[in-house]
């Protein structure tokens, strides 16, 4: 099977500072890939390379066999959507207006959004169960509602791949669960391919079909959650002793600090 996104021998430097080296990674159709690792291990950098926001210093990232460097930004944005970690809502856009921004790569230079775009945006809001928020100002929404709207914006791009950077940071337990369930449902129902960065090992292990664990800018290990999340791996990568057992409700690995 041909991967949707493939990274071959990727390296990346911020100036003199090497952030990633020798990354080989394939994102397969319909999977949910969780990128985990300690602070500064290069998770967000890796995600930004996959989304074409950064250009690798070495190696190539390809979307269905075509190097990202050969694709225009709008072309890429029609296939790959991102939900960024940093969002600003200082101005009173409605949720619908924010979602309509996702139509930008499909519009001509000075074109206004038409019926088709509004339908696509409303459909996206529907899928993320945020349709009743459409006319609410975005800055009045709660953290969880806002994250739904941002995922809807990414969906309005009608992408095949969605990249999410820490989609549940700043959210409380209930919203964390809701957002991960939403992502899992999207992947299951629409075949959307997902890669996400997460600080929360347990949640990532629970909802992702595969994990990749980074250590100091390199892949430490990758595989099924049960194979990646072990006391030995986490001890070595996070430099922190943990106890790993199996969550009886999900059958997925569960970590506890010791």
């Amino acid at each position: 099977m041909e991967p949707v996104l493939s990274l071959q021998n990727i390296g990346f430097c911020y100036g003199q500072q090497r952030a990633l080296a020798g990354i080989d990674l394939r994102l397969m159709d319909g999977e949910i890939l969780g990128i985990i690792g300690p602070n500064g291990s290069g998770k967000s950098t890796l995600l930004n390379l996959m989304g074409g926001l950064l250009t690798p210093t070495d190696g190539t990232v390809s979307l269905r066999g075509r190097p990202l460097s050969e694709l225009s930004r709008p072309e890429l944005a029609r296939d790959v959507a991102m939900v960024a970690q940093e969002n600003y809502f200082r101005f009173a856009f409605t949720a619908l207006e924010v979602v309509l921004m996702g139509r930008y790569p499909r519009l001509k230079r000075l074109q206004f959004e038409g019926r088709k775009d509004i339908d696509a945006a409303m459909h996206a809001l529907d899928v993320t169960q945020a349709a009743d928020l459409a006319d609410r100002p975005i800055h009045e929404l709660s953290g969880g509602e806002r994250q739904r709207v941002l995922i809807a914006r990414a969906l309005a791009q009608e992408p095949r791949v969605m990249l999410l950077d820490e989609p549940t940071s700043f959210l409380d337990l209930k919203f964390k669960r809701e957002i991960f369930r939403l992502i899992a449902a999207l992947s299951r129902d629409t075949g959307l391919t997902v890669a996400l960065v997460s600080h929360d090992i347990d949640l990532a292990a629970m909802y992702c079909s595969r994990l990749v664990m980074l250590k100091q800018g390199a892949v430490y290990t990758t595989g099924l959650p049960g194979d990646v999340v072990t006391a030995e791996h986490i001890g070595a990568v996070y430099e922190c002793p943990v106890l790993v057992d199996t969550n009886p409700a999900t059958g997925r690995p569960r970590t506890s600090l010791v």
């Binding site: 926001l53 225009s72 944005a77 809502f89 996702g102 930008y104 230079r109």
Partner: peptide, 23 residues
């Protein structure tokens, strides 16, 4: 005025604007 759609997106974040194809 011809940049107003781009300005809309930039107000919500540089990364997302770049990702959507705004220079």
């Amino acid at each position: 005025y011809s940049l107003s759609k781009e300005l809309n997106i930039i107000t919500t974040g540089d990364d997302i604007a770049a990702q959507l194809g705004v220079n």
